[in-house]
């Protein structure tokens, strides 16, 4: 089963609806950032990521 990324927050999961924000997910995504410590990450801050996890950099509908 292909992994999907949320069209809104870009969180990666296998679900049709994002487990974090309940938005639609898409199987068409690229790039990856794994945030392990959002409180100490400039990258996470730049991307408005506040929860640890795996996120796509780009999500197409």
């Amino acid at each position: 089963m292909a992994e999907r990324a949320c069209q809104r927050c870009k969180y990666i999961s296998y679900d049709k609806k994002c487990p974090i924000c309940d938005s639609e997910t898409s199987s068409d995504w690229s790039g990856l950032i794994v945030v392990t410590d959002p409180d100490n990450s400039k990258l996470a801050e730049e991307l408005n990521i506040t929860m640890p996890g795996r996120y796509a950099l780009k999500v197409n509908k």
């Binding site: 690229s30 790039g31 990856l32 950032i33 794994v34 945030v35 392990t36 410590d37 959002p38 409180d39 100490n40 990450s41 990258l43 996470a44 950099l57 780009k58």
Partner: peptide, 14 residues
């Protein structure tokens, strides 16, 4: 995950 490496994020651009 449970190690003190100081790493906060890992980026893999396409």
């Amino acid at each position: 995950k449970h190690e003190d490496t100081g790493i906060s994020a890992i980026l893999a651009p396409e």
